[in-house]
Amino acid sequence: MASANGQTESATTKAHKASVEARHGDAAVAVALLTLAVYVIWTAQAMPVGSIASPGPGFFPLGLGIALAATSLGLLLRSRIIAGDRSSVELMHASVGAAFVILMGVAFFFDLLGALPTLALMLAILSRTFAPIAWWKAALFGIAGAFAAWIFFVRLLGVSLPGA
């Protein structure tokens, strides 16, 4: 949404782009959904499905799994045969990939390291990744941000965070 006219793309976002045709992306999503559907159908069969007149806990997952399989097959067909969109979609700028990896790291270390050190590290690394600022400034930003989070969430709102 931030694509205003007269605005210039920053240097950090220019490099390392990958682009794919929209129809290939649609097909990839359809295959992922189809795999999920097969898994849901397979797992639901191990639950008591009941009967049509008296559905059990597996009835809905089974029905929905079949519906998802049908829909994803339809999507696959649409992307390959009927209305394949050949426009190109840019994917995974370096900054997006980096942000996602850092967020996965936060989820992993949140309990292990404690919330505040993890969040301070996240702020420092993310700000350094998105803009060419000095490391000491990024570190200061991380510490200040984590301290502010502690004041606001832990002291003011009484939120209980691991290790805080």
């Binding site: 949404m1 931030a2 694509s3 205003a4 007269g6 605005q7 210039t8 793309e9 920053s10 950090t12 976002t13 840019e90 700028h93 900054s95 997006v96 942000a99 996602f100 998105f130």
Partner: peptide
């Protein structure tokens, strides 16, 4: 997801 999308088009605002 909105933040990830915005990271692709960080821009100066006037």
């Amino acid at each position: 997801s909105e933040i990830l999308l915005n990271l692709e088009r960080i821009a100066a605002v006037h």
